[in-house]
């Protein structure tokens, strides 16, 4: 993503690192859309995406002085956002008493999984039917470009965990998509 280079001046980043609120707001404005979209795609709903956005930029404000500038600012912000989204997914899995191992569609309030679609569905609906973990792996690998090693590490699993989740995601999409 080039938006940081286009929108943010080095001086602004330096001021943000020094804790200047105006410069931090500029960082927020430059990256709020991709962070929100990442949260929305990984978590699958507006409320969680909003939490990811807020938690990410609270963390950015707290920790930006530790950004060394050896990579792009977007890569660093995105890393924070991914870890916040994964933390949220972990919390929700924990609340539901399930481990972070993927699986299919989250059960409804009666503990039943929604029925399998009888006709092809579109990509948006198919993404919504994947389990949060499987969807997160699919998004991180196929869209954001993280490697299986990176995903495994971020999710506290192995490379093969990430590969198996991606494979599971594509098998499901293969069945569901028109």
């Amino acid at each position: 993503m080039k938006s940081d280079a286009l929108v943010l001046e080095n001086a602004q980043v330096a001021r943000a690192r020094a804790g200047d609120l105006e410069a931090l707001e500029a960082v927020y404005r430059a990256f709020r859309a991709p962070v929100y979209n990442l949260g929305r795609r990984m978590c699958g709903n507006e409320e969680d995406a909003e939490d990811v956005l807020q938690e990410t930029f609270l963390e950015v404000c707290r920790s930006i002085r530790r950004f060394r500038g050896d990579g792009s600012l977007w890569s660093w912000v995105r890393q924070v956002a991914v870890s916040k989204a994964l933390m949220l997914l972990r919390r929700e899995r924990g609340r539901a008493g399930r481990s972070l191992d993927g699986g299919l569609i989250p059960p409804d309030s009666l503990g039943k999984s929604p029925p399998e679609p009888t006709a092809p569905i579109d990509l948006e609906s198919a993404l919504g039917r994947l389990s949060p973990v499987t969807r997160a792996v699919l998004w991180l690998h196929d869209v954001e470009g993280y490697t299986h090693e990176e995903i495994g590490e971020m999710m506290g699993g192995s490379t093969s965990f990430s590969k198996s989740q991606l494979s599971r995601a594509h098998k499901r999409l293969r069945e569901w998509l028109d």
Partner: peptide, 29 residues
């Protein structure tokens, strides 16, 4: 087909973020 799905995922529409989050963040900071 796998190439096409990846391309479709990358071309999915984006969502607009909510407007008033920064004020909350700034207050908290």
């Amino acid at each position: 087909r796998l190439y096409q799905i990846q391309a479709r995922l990358r071309a999915m529409p984006t969502f607009s973020p909510p407007r008033d989050i920064w004020r909350r963040i700034a207050r908290s900071v």
